[in-house]
Computed example of a mutant assay.
Amino acid sequence: MSALAPVRVLIVDDDPLVRAGLVTLLEGGPGLEVVGGAGDGAAALTAVEQAVPPVDVVLMDIRMPGVDGITATARLRELPSPPQVLVLTTFDTDEQVLRALRAGAAGFLLKDTPPDRIVSCVHSVAAGEPVLSPAAARRLIDFVADDPAPARRDRARTALAALTERERAVATALADGLTNQEIAAALHMSVATVKAHITRLLRELGLNNRTQVALLAYDARGER
Rank of each mutant, 00 (worst) to 15 (best):
P30H: 11
R75D: 04
L160W: 02
P130F: 10
V170N: 00
P54I: 03
A186H: 06
Q96C: 04
L10R: 09
D56H: 14
V194I: 11
G41V: 09
L10V: 04
L59G: 01
L216M: 07
I62H: 04
P114I: 06
A161F: 05
A38E: 08
M60F: 03
A43I: 03
E78K: 14
A72P: 05
I141C: 08
E165K: 04
E204I: 00
I183C: 00
T24H: 09
A161V: 00
A175N: 02
E167N: 02
A20G: 10
A186F: 01
H197E: 13
T199H: 14
A127F: 05
P150E: 10
Q181A: 15
R19F: 08
L88G: 01
M64H: 03
D92L: 03
M64K: 01
L76S: 02
A135M: 14
R139I: 00
L207V: 02
G107V: 03
V18R: 10
V122H: 12
I70T: 03
T179S: 15
L178N: 00
R168D: 06
L17I: 14
A217E: 05
D40Y: 05
R102D: 13
Q84H: 12
P150C: 07
L88V: 07
M1N: 13
L174Y: 05
A137I: 13
R102E: 15
L205Y: 07
E33T: 11
G41D: 02
A173F: 02
A149S: 13
D147V: 09
A105H: 13
S124V: 00
A162P: 00
D116W: 06
T24V: 12
E27H: 11
T89C: 07
L202W: 01
T179F: 00
D112N: 15
S81M: 06
I198A: 01
A196C: 01
A126I: 05
R99L: 13
L187W: 10
A106C: 12
M64C: 07
V194T: 15
T89L: 08
P115Y: 05
G29N: 10
Y218Q: 11
A126K: 05
F143N: 02
L215C: 11
A162L: 09
R210K: 14
L45S: 02
M64L: 04
L59S: 01
E167T: 02
I183E: 01
G128D: 13
V122A: 11
G28Y: 04
L187C: 06
E78S: 14
